[in-house]
C-alpha cells in the first residue's frame, strides 16, 4: 500500500506510456506488415501473382531483420530514430525500433494466416472472374480474419516484451521503471508490481484476441 502511495502516479504513467508505445507500434507495424505479408503470399510461385525476384527480396529482408536480436536492433537504429523523431530517448522515439522489429514479424504472421486458406476457394474466386485485387480484398482477407485477429494478439504480446526492452534503454514505460527502480535502486517490490502489470496486459490482450477471433469465426 505504502508502495502504491509512493509510486502510484509513476506506475500509472508507466502503464499509459507502455500501452501507448505498444498500440502505436502495433498500428504502424500492421500498416506496413499487412501489405508485406500479402505480397509474400501472392508473389510466391504458386500465388496469384508470381514474381520470383520480388518474393525473394522481400523474404530476405524479413529474415534479416527477424534474425537481429531486438536488443541489438534497438541500438542499431538509433541514428534512424534521431532522423525521424529528432531524439532517441523517450516513449515516442522507441516507437521507431519497435515498428522496425515488428514489421517482419507481422509480415510472417499475416503470411501464415493467408496461407491457411484453402486454395480451392481462391480458384473458385478466379473462376467467378475476380481480379487479383478483388481476391485479396474480398476473399483472402475476410476469409482469414479470425486467424489474422489471433495473429494480431500474438504480435501485440510480442510488442509488450519489446516495449519493455525499449524502456530499459531509455524508452520509458513499465520496462523503464523496472530497470530504474528495481535494478538500480533495489526496489524489488516495485519491480514485482511492474511485472504483475505486464502480465495483466498480456493476459488481457490474449483473452480479448481469442474472444474476438472466436466470435467472428463462422467455421464453428
Amino acid at each position: 500500500m505504502e508502495l502504491l502511495n509512493e509510486y502510484g502516479s509513476i506506475l500509472i504513467k508507466g502503464t499509459i506510456d507502455s500501452l501507448y508505445m505498444i498500440f502505436v507500434s502495433v498500428f504502424f507495424s500492421y500498416l506496413i506488415g499487412i501489405p508485406a505479408g500479402i505480397a509474400l503470399v501472392v508473389t510466391d510461385e504458386n500465388g496469384i501473382m508470381p514474381a520470383k525476384t520480388c518474393y525473394n527480396i522481400l523474404g530476405t529482408i524479413v529474415n534479416i531483420v527477424r534474425s537481429v536480436p531486438f536488443i541489438i536492433l534497438l541500438i542499431a537504429v538509433i541514428p534512424l530514430t534521431r532522423l525521424i523523431v529528432g531524439t532517441s530517448i523517450g516513449v515516442t522515439a522507441s516507437i521507431v525500433p519497435l515498428v522496425i522489429g515488428a514489421v517482419p514479424f507481422v509480415a510472417r504472421m499475416v503470411e501464415s494466416s493467408l496461407r491457411e486458406l484453402n486454395k480451392g476457394i481462391i480458384e473458385a474466386a478466379i473462376s467467378m472472374g475476380c481480379s487479383n485485387m478483388q481476391i485479396i480484398t474480398k476473399v483472402m482477407i475476410p476469409e482469414s480474419m479470425p486467424s489474422l485477429i489471433l495473429g494480431a494478439s500474438i504480435t501485440t504480446i510480442t510488442l509488450v516484451g519489446y516495449s519493455a526492452m525499449a524502456g530499459a534503454v531509455g524508452g520509458g514505460g513499465l520496462g523503464d521503471i523496472a530497470i530504474r527502480y528495481g535494478y538500480y535502486r533495489y526496489e524489488r517490490d516495485l519491480m514485482m508490481v511492474t511485472i504483475v502489470l505486464l502480465v495483466a496486459i498480456v493476459q488481457l490482450i490474449q483473452i480479448t484476441g481469442n474472444r474476438i477471433s472466436k466470435k467472428i469465426n463462422k467455421l464453428n
Binding site: 480451392g120 476457394i121 473458385a124 475476410p142 467472428i216 463462422k218 467455421l219
Partner: peptide
Amino acid sequence: LGMIFQDFNLLMQK
C-alpha cells in the same frame, strides 16, 4: 462460365 467443384469451395466466413 460457371464452375462447381468436388469440395464446393464456398466462402466459409460468408
